[in-house]
Design a protein around this nucleic acid. Sequence first.
DNA 1: CTTGGCTCGTGAACGGTTTCACGAGGGGTA
DNA 2: TACCCCTCGTGAAACCGTTCACGAGCCAAG
Lengths: 230, 230
Amino acid sequence: MTSSPRPPRPARGVPDATVARLPVYLRALAALADEGLSTVSSDELATAAGVTSAKVRKDLSHLGSWGTRGVGYDVEALASHITRELGLDERRSVVIVGIGNLGRALAGYGGFASRGFHIAGLVDADQQRQGEMVHGQRIRPYDQLGDIVREHAVRFGVIATPADAAQDVADAMVDSGVTSILNFAPVVLNVPDNVDVRRVDLATELQILSFHHVRKGGEPVGVLTGVATS
Amino acid sequence: MTSSPRPPRPARGVPDATVARLPVYLRALAALADEGLSTVSSDELATAAGVTSAKVRKDLSHLGSWGTRGVGYDVEALASHITRELGLDERRSVVIVGIGNLGRALAGYGGFASRGFHIAGLVDADQQRQGEMVHGQRIRPYDQLGDIVREHAVRFGVIATPADAAQDVADAMVDSGVTSILNFAPVVLNVPDNVDVRRVDLATELQILSFHHVRKGGEPVGVLTGVATS
DNA sequence: CTTGGCTCGTGAACGGTTTCACGAGGGGTA
DNA sequence: TACCCCTCGTGAAACCGTTCACGAGCCAAG
């Protein structure tokens, strides 16, 4: 409570591409801190994060100057700065709808809890699943979604339902106050402008890999012929 | 076997940004076909895919001219063209390593099977899981990974293990012939240049949402104070 | 105090992506 | 057949992101 309630407001317009990399830096910094390092150069951080050092410096420059010339960045200070920048210093409540395998994986994903996300509720429409305990949380019926969101002032919703349920879920979330949605269902959601949606499609990623595979090797992969190579 | 073994090779340098959208178009087209439409305008397809019509036209132009001026695109023809372009007309074998909740979700994900991906094997290092049936496949021990890859000429690997196992798994995959890896573990993998890696980090996505949340509402969400809003 | 070496921070150049605007070329109708 | 309307395909322009190159600043050593 002694720290400034409204920090120096260091960054203004951080580019989207940079924002997308901040979590990666954050994770890399955590790993470096675990190794006992107290300082990193942009080069080291770049390697750990899988990007170029120029990118690291440019990205971090958007958050203000936090490095020391000739030395590098202070691991702990930089990590906490990025944490604040991402808003991860405040605890944020999340509701997950659709507790199939994916929903369970998300509910138990350490990356959520360790980054300030608190799971306020697990919701599923399937009667059979209701009441079941998943990672310390009871699965609750779909019609309680609104109550959960309102009660815990939830602003983040995760949709891990089948495609045909996703839009309904999104509508219900928005109605009760959710303003940021992470959508794993393979549909384009229709939401008001003030609501943020990010879509993650597991199949899409494999298809992109497939494209590059064709481009690179182009190898036909003889499933039918089944003849071993040479 | 009657179709040309080396198709017209229609597109040359398709931009990455376009490639990333092709699977989305493909899905949108499938949905439109289900509705019985035989033709779409770039505008309709754009709406269905959640992008702009200009993007659709530019993207599709990279694949060659497949639309009819004044009419639009033939749904079926375009879908099959994109399918071919992505290399999804050939069956591709995939191995999934790490059969926790995420691995199970992936194993059962319809988006894989319906897009030409055939799951050649599920692998887990946990003795307790081995032998268990998941979506019609038996979970096999980790030391059989190489055999599975070689036997089925697998070129696609999915890593759904904890972070500390991911690099070992990647090494084993690469050693036995995998050239495209989809990595869900929150680490940067070290692989040879000829191997393609795409990383999907579930926590990252929420953190990006969090950033935008701070920027937009900035609402503090009083978890500690716990006072209901006004 | 001065020197040398290292690394950040940043303007400028570059390349890729998106948007814009409009001409070209189809289909339908009279 | 001739006309109109509609939508694709595509250069040009605007925008964004990455890479490059180098000066500024800090630390350590002598």
